[in-house]
Write a protein that binds this DNA or RNA. Structure first.
Lengths: 202, 202
DNA sequence: CCTACCGATCGGTAGG
DNA sequence: CCTACCGATCGGTAGG
């Protein structure tokens, strides 16, 4: 009972902090801001967490692991490049829509991680981006996609996915599933249109 | 001579501040950081500028005006929706590539503007986004683009453009012009592919 | 452009 | 979870 209370209080702190970090940015968010959202004094927060940065670390690495695990699972299914990319996009969108605040913080505030966390984080980010580049390279090689600068294409796709948190309204017309499907169609068609090699595959 | 020196010193402060704000974020950048980049004391900066926020205001509104002016000029040319969108994308990319640091700050740090600046800024941002939505609505109405949720499409395009500062290397293979052309092709093809109404236009 | 300094606020600790 | 408090740092000013 006591343990249960403590866990849920810690989760409440993390959730409120995520909201706060999203709205004001990590550096401009003070522990006194967070405390007043919780209705307690700033010093009391330290009964539940070790430091302000610990919260940021948890947000960043939880999401980074979700993104990477999903992508690894999809990548090893050995589908066509198009289907791999479609599944990767849909999985990415799902992670974002499940916690829009966390994904905003993940994307905008990771630079405030200290060493060695920032180095680890950047390694994971790089691995993820390289995997997207590889998928597109494969698609170009196999004639599924048009000839295109692969890094450019991968970063354009990832940018549009990582911008979702800035405009997506969970209560709006598009459900997360519809959003993932639609954005996958739009971005993949952008890679396929005018593809002169596509007949090689059919 | 004295006036000329003072102007260029102010510009140097603004340029260095832009770089600093990009790298550390506005809130985590101190005037002492900026001073040490300039080789002077923090207090001396205030001979040239009024406040830290004044620099942020200049960055944000200079870019916002560039984006809006370009888009208004293009919009009033009364081209097809596709050509309007293509020109808008290319113009947007040009502004970003001309000053990658400034556009990173513009996009990531505007939330630190105080009133009334933040309200003005958000108005301009909204106007810009609505104009993109209108262009896409027109394209869908005229059968140039497939049927698509217009706000979703506009925000996806703008997100991919506003992510350019995170990965674009001015010394890399793609020139700013090539980047603008390529990204326009990819995004517009994503709007056109599978368009069942396209024959209405030819 | 500098020295000297201001009040405010920061993340965090001690001790209960 | 609180009171009381710490040293560090912040943006900015006065006066030269």
């Amino acid at each position: 009972m006591l343990l249960k209370d403590k866990i849920s209080r810690k989760q409440e702190i993390e959730q409120k902090a995520t909201k706060l970090f999203k709205e004001k940015g990590y550096a401009a968010s003070s522990m006194r801001d967070l405390a007043s959202m919780l209705g307690i004094e700033a010093a009391s927060i330290y009964s539940h967490i070790k430091s302000k940065e610990e919260i940021l670390q948890k947000i960043c690495f939880t999401l980074a692991n979700q993104f990477l695990n999903n992508l690894n699972n999809i990548y090893h299914k050995k589908l066509s490049a198009e289907e791999t990319l479609r599944n990767a996009i849909i999985a990415h969108v799902k992670v974002i829509t499940e916690d829009v605040s966390a994904s905003a913080v993940f994307w905008n505030e990771y630079k405030h991680l200290s060493e060695p966390y920032i180095t680890d984080f950047l390694k994971m980010k790089n691995e993820y981006e390289n995997c997207f580049i590889e998928i597109i390279k494969k698609g170009v090689r196999r004639g599924e996609f048009r000839k295109i600068e692969e890094k450019f294409a991968a970063m354009t796709i990832l940018s549009s996915l990582n911008g979702i948190h800035q405009w997506y309204n969970p209560k709006g017309r598009l459900t997360p599933g519809e959003l993932g499907d639609q954005i996958a169609v739009m971005l993949i068609d952008g890679l396929k249109a005018g593809n002169k090699n596509s007949k090689l595959k059919t």
